[in-house]
Amino acid sequence: MHKYSSYKTYTPYISKYDPCPPMKVKSYSTPINLYLGFQPMNLPQYQAREALQKGTLWPALYSPYEKVKMRKPLFSKPQTQPELQPEEEEMD
């Protein structure tokens, strides 16, 4: 299966005349359910306690949200395509 990142970012237009300091990078969640299709059989599973803590039995379905990571402008140059290091997950 293809690589997937649990959120995407984009750089909105910033006017010279905006009244507030600009948020240079905006982000939105793209959880695993957008990509998975039918869940494949026999995927690896968490142990019971970790599954409860994570909210899912399968690592493949875990798609976390961290507010600090989401809200911080990650990139100094707003016009370039931002790279997505955190939570990069390889799925097979």
């Binding site: 959880p31 359910n33 994570k54 909210g55 899912t56 379905l61 875990y62 798609s63 949200y65």
Partner: peptide
């Protein structure tokens, strides 16, 4: 409090996945 809310958020993702499978 965030911990409980994160659990609930993950459950929404799993539910969405299951509804998508139901459509399939």
């Amino acid at each position: 409090l965030q911990d409980g809310l994160k659990f609930l958020r993950e459950r929404e993702i799993v539910h969405s996945q299951r509804f998508r499978e139901a459509v399939e």
